[in-house]
Design a protein around this nucleic acid. Structure first.
Length: 636
RNA sequence: GCCUGGGUAGCUCAGUGGUAGAGCAGCGCACUCGUAAUGCGCAGGCCGUGGGUUCAAUCCCCACCCCAGGCUCCA
């Protein structure tokens, strides 16, 4: 808050921004916690705080106003266009349209719309707010069916507000809560980005609309920075890097969402999986192994066929029985638990599997390795007594963070989803589990928010999100308490009291899926993975043929301690060979020439460093590489 | 599934109603070099699939397949 601006008072007209120079350039005001137009007079006794365009709230207003201008431009260019909604988003804005007579936007239309928007902006059209009665609203929007629907849903007696923009040869009015900038002249640092499809109210059974995405900022520089960030994100795209680095691809012969891993990609995933196995075995988990197909009855009993069947592959008929591909590991782990009677002395029982599951995701949502139809979860199910639950949850959250931090990921946020309106089980169990989850989060020390009522009907849960190197959020780990499956499968253990009890059950995955986690790592590191994960760790380049056998000795020394190497003989210029290594994002590129032969040294070019280092002794280099591998870091 | 864009050489892409081009990668020859592209040459394509229009289709039309972006962060 930047201090009072009571001076913004002054009737319903726009208050002149004079006097205090700090306050020039405000585009809206905050009164009593709500954002209002500069033109809105505060009531007596209210304090107004200015909102500047370079704040989150300010940008959101700029974007919302720009969305209005875009809608105005579209209405000018396509008379009869029907408007749906046009909000600001975290990164920009969009507006959904229903064009008349089957007209459609194409990418080429964006330039036309932008041009018209710039005309509107240069006309300095004021955004004029009007309060409209509930009765006269429908008249005003008689040819805007979506606006009418919105009006109808408003509570009786609630007043409507509209914003008008009048300019040369066109005028525009939109149902809108506001606030807006005072005039279109306050806008201009925007760009329309893409045309997309959408549905009215996001419901695929309702009218298909067309959405135009754009973004707007407070300055051309800020806009340029954002566009640069988008370019960065594109350069890091794991699908692109997957091809460039020869890691994996999606053969259409196999089908959408089903990757094949090439040798280098498979090596990365093998390292991830070996690491995962090893930390789980060291962390009190027991490995299990379960098949990829099962009789459908198993998923009848688990309930998955009831609420999850739309993402399950259709049945396979075998010898008169119906089989299904496994979409989740939990029922199988339950069968392991239930294979014999259990005592409280067996608990907690933590069953771990790198379990491959198949989910029939809709074609439109597939996205490289991040969203596939066949994936391997680092999945575990913990069966424990109610008393053990808090300790188990705290340990799981700590374990998850420890594992994620091993990969150089440091920025986490969690979400605790609590009991929804429709739920099964006892309120007391929910409260117990939710409190235990929250205690685990507090103990972990990471920031979290509570998503009230967003838990699944059978369980509260924690989702852990991480922020990658360019600030994007990815959901990875999930920890879920389950009140349903132990009951459905009638799981039990005999307590110290010699009575039967249902165990508590916790589902948890740390990477989420190996495939998706690999995608996240590739994007986070822009392909330049830490040394221990790099498929090739060291490239050794002889300066000329005469240095070849010395290079061979260097390679042998590295391979002897388990370092993965490659080389290119001196058939092409050194610079070209170095470039190839750099493009492959190899952490260490060694150059060995006559000087090195005589002194037992190597020249070291480390990824992430500008200048190569000459004359490093071979033993020091071997030590450096093995240390980097052991510390699971990048070249130092 | 639906809307938009796209499918041309291994990769990135250009192109035209008269059966196709570049750069990189590959292969060959020469160059033997100290930290991000040596030169020359060769080879490489059912222009996504099927149908239609046409004397003639990679190009125009229809259908299908595949890929990408998006599909309520509320008026």
């Amino acid at each position: 808050m930047r201090g009072s601006v009571g001076w913004l008072r002054g009737g319903s007209k726009m208050a002149p921004v004079t006097g205090d120079s700090r306050l020039e350039g405000a585009i809206a005001a905050l009164i009593d916690g709500s954002l209002v137009d500069l033109a809105t007079a505060p009531q007596d006794g209210e304090e107004a705080t200015p909102v500047y365009p370079d704040s989150d709230a300010g940008r959101s207003i700029l974007r919302h106003s720009t969305a209005h201008v875009m809608a105005q431009a579209v209405c000018d260019l396509w008379p009869g266009a029907r408007l749906a909604i046009g909000p600001a988003t975290d990164e920009g804005f969009y507006y959904d349209f229903d064009l008349p007579e089957g007209a459609h936007f194409t990418d080429d239309d964006l330039a036309r719309i932008e041009a018209r928007m710039r005309e509107i902006i240069s006309e300095d059209q004021p955004f004029v707010r009007e309060e409209v009665s509930r009765e006269s609203g429908p008249e005003l929007f008689s040819n805007q069916p979506y606006k009418l629907e919105i009006i109808e849903e408003l509570a009786d007696g609630e007043s409507l507000s509209v914003y008008r923009n009048d300019g040369v040869g066109s005028s525009f009015v939109d149902l809108c809560r506001g606030p807006h900038v005072r005039s279109t002249a306050a806008l201009g640092h925007f760009k329309l980005l893409k045309v997309a499809g959408s549905y009215w109210r996001g419901d695929e059974h309702r009218q298909q609309l067309q959405r135009i995405y754009g973004t707007a900022f407070e300055s051309d520089q800020a806009l340029a920075n954002h566009i640069e960030m988008l370019a960065q994100a594109e350069a890091r795209d794991h699908r692109r890097l997957g091809t460039e680095l020869d890691l994996f691809h999606f053969p259409s012969e196999i089908g959408g969402g089903l990757p094949v891993f090439h040798p280098k990609g498979a090596l990365i995933r093998t390292i991830l999986e070996d690491f995962s196995r090893s930390v789980h075995l060291g962390g009190g988990y027991q490995p299990v192994w379960t098949p990829h197909v099962t009789r459908a009855e198993l998923y009848e009993r688990s309930g998955h066929l009831g609420w999850y069947s739309d993402v399950m592959y259709p049945p396979l008929e075998m010898e008169g029985a119906e089989y299904r591909l496994k979409p989740m590991n939990c029922p199988m782990h339950i069968l392991v638990y239930a294979s014999r009677g259990r005592s409280y002395r067996d608990l907690p029982m933590r069953l771990f599997e790198l379990g491959t599951v198949y989910r029939f995701e809709r074609s439109g949502v597939l996205h490289g390795l991040a969203r596939v139809r066949g994936l391997t979860q680092d999945d575990a199910h913990i069966f424990c007594t109610p008393e053990q639950l808090p300790g188990e949850l705290e340990a799981v959250v700590a374990f998850a963070l420890e594992v994620l931090r091993t990969f150089g990921l440091t920025d986490f946020e969690a979400e605790l989803s609590t009991r929804p309106e429709k739920f099964i089980g006892e309120v007391a169990d929910w409260d117990h589990a939710t409190a235990a989850l929250e205690a685990a989060l507090i103990a972990s020390g990471i920031p979290y928010r509570i998503a009230e009522g967003e838990g699944a009907f059978y369980a509260p849960k924690i989702d852990i999100h991480l922020k990658d190197a360019i600030g994007r959020r990815w959901q990875v780990s999930t920890v879920q308490v389950d009140f349903q499956l132990p009951t459905r499968f009638d799981l039990s253990y005999v307590g110290a009291d010699n009575e039967r009890h249902h165990p508590h059950m916790v589902h948890r995955a740390l990477f989420g899926s190996v495939e998706r986690f690999m995608a996240i790592l590739i994007e986070h590191y822009a392909g330049a993975l830490p040394v221990w994960l790099s498929p090739v760790q060291v490239m050794v380049l002889p300066v000329k043929d005469a240095n070849q056998s010395y290079a061979g000795g260097v390679i042998e020394a590295l391979q002897a301690v388990g370092v993965r190497t490659t080389t290119i003989p001196a058939g092409e210029p050194l610079g070209a060979r170095i470039r190839k290594g750099k493009l492959e994002k190899i952490p260490y590129i060694l150059v060995v020439g006559d000087d090195d032969m005589s002194q037992g040294t190597v020249g070291v070019n480390r990824s992430g460093h500008d200048k190569p280092e000459r004359g490093v002794s071979l033993s020091a280099l071997v030590e450096e590489v093995t240390t980097a591998v052991r510390n699971r870091c990048a070249p130092m």
